[in-house]
Amino acid sequence: MAVKGLPASWRKIPQRYNLIGDECKTCGERFFPPVTICPNCRRTGSLERYKFSGEGEIFSYTVVRAAQEGFDFQIPYFLGIIKLKEGPLVISQIVDSDPEEIDIGKKVKTVFRKVREDGSDGVIRYGYKFILDR
């Protein structure tokens, strides 16, 4: 059976597996997810691939109790805004953690996890999530 829509996620493999974004060599700002043009420098910008370390801290978070489809069996789960060490803010699940452990400012690091499955016969989407850096 032919399945449509594979290229969109396939193109995102570098960013989803390895947090690869961009760095503007003109202004020095780093971007995640990748950008097509530096919003600061525009035509004078010079973008290069940049791999983020995966280290950061919890900038903010929420507990999801009414999940979107595909995440139903994971509730309650933590969705955080992570401030990466190199600057950008990233939205991601924070997994393998208990409610009393999670707090703003706590150090986190990336792990490689399943993000969703397209049914039992479809593609498995892997990517980054965060855990507490204990």
Partner: peptide, 16 residues
Amino acid sequence: PGFDEDSTTIAVEAAR
């Protein structure tokens, strides 16, 4: 394994 772990994610963590 956690709900979002499988042999692939375990292998990747070990490989890294």
